[in-house]
């Protein structure tokens, strides 16, 4: 059962037919954040910084318990804190772990025009390979969760790797390892779904009637799901209610690519056939061509002297834009 460790590529950005898995089956891994168990200690943030050797960045106090206002190119994991007064008058203290959800249908990968800058492994991890990134930021536009962050200095985009280097060596991601309450869990996707569903039933029994397992279908499911106690307050957690792979957008782009290649080749081919059929159009000998040109002038002059108004002549000089003729240079 070590196939989740082997980093078979399922999809590689801007690379047709990039799957490499010939094995009979593969195991998909997943994280699960049980928000019910989270105490907001932010150990995961530190562990992420430490394991990935990311620089500490100056922050600002926004009057919240939150470490910093937003994710940055060097902050791949951030706990989002929101205090919301409920209709009952209770205070809901909402925490969300903000980091890549590793979608089954990754909008970032589908949007990326740089071969191999985004890779999806068979175990479900979606990783950015910055050496292939061209800095176009289309992945940011493709992500339904607003996760990737662009670094001006390196000109590359960064996000959580799900500690792919740890996972491929049989270890859980750093945030999971550091969590003191077991709020962040790691296992196979199946195990996490089973845990999530069981936990939701438990929460419902405890009175959290809107408790839900957040594993949105609009992106094909995710590899970091959440157990959300207040499932009716997703916007307050800053979780999109119905995240979707922008299917119409990617479908249109893909259709345009097919149409574009077909049309370009057809156009080139048609031009070639047209050439074979009609060949080169040489002007007649100089004397003949010149005589014709001056004959046209005489005809126009003759037409102009008749009673007909000049405009009635469809190709008379008076009707043209430049009766005097622009200087051709």
């Amino acid at each position: 059962m070590a196939t989740e460790l082997a980093l078979n590529v399922r999809r590689r950005s801007a690379t047709p037919a990039s799957g490499t898995n010939i094995r009979r089956d593969h195991v998909e891994v997943s994280k699960l954040v049980d928000i019910d168990l989270c105490i907001g200690c932010k150990a995961c943030e530190i562990a992420c910084k430490e394991w990935n050797d990311l620089p500490v960045e100056p922050s600002v106090n926004t009057g919240s318990y939150q470490t910093r206002p937003d994710l940055t190119p060097a902050t791949w994991d951030l706990m989002i804190f929101n205090e919301v007064e409920r209709d009952s008058g209770d205070l809901a203290w909402l925490i969300k772990k903000d980091s890549c959800l590793h979608c089954e249908e990754p909008g970032c990968l589908l949007a990326c025009p740089a071969p191999g800058a985004v890779v999806q492994y068979d175990n479900g991890i979606v990783d950015f390979n910055q050496e292939n990134c061209i800095g176009c930021r289309y992945c940011i536009a493709g992500c339904p969760f607003d996760i990737p962050r662009f670094d001006e200095e390196t000109g590359k985009v960064y996000k959580c790797t799900m500690c792919v280097d740890r996972v491929s060596n049989g270890l859980e991601p750093a945030c999971v390892k550091s969590c003191p309450t077991g709020s962040i869990r790691f296992g196979t996707k199946e195990e996490m779904v089973a845990y999530g569903e069981a936990k939701v039933s438990k929460l419902k029994a405890r009175g959290f009637e809107h408790a839900m397992h957040y594993d949105p279908e609009g992106v094909g499911g995710v590899h970091m799901s959440y157990v959300v106690p207040h499932g009716d307050m997703l916007p307050d957690y800053e979780l999109p209610e119905d995240p979707k792979v922008p299917g119409a957008y990617f479908g249109t782009l893909s259709g345009l690519r097919k149409l574009g290649s077909a049309a370009t080749w057809a156009g080139a081919l048609a031009t070639g056939i047209f050439f074979l059929r009609t060949g080169r159009r040489r002007p007649p000998p100089e004397e003949e061509a010149v005589a014709e040109a001056y004959a046209l002038e005489e005809r126009d002059e003759a037409a102009a002297t008749t009673s007909e108004p000049p405009d009635a002549d469809p190709y008379g000089p008076a009707g043209d834009a430049t009766p005097e003729g622009g200087e051709p240079g």
Binding site: P283, P284, E286, E288, A289, V290, A293
Partner: peptide
């Protein structure tokens, strides 16, 4: 050429 210009 004059031929080209006169023709086209």
């Amino acid at each position: 050429s004059r031929a080209w210009a006169a023709h086209h």
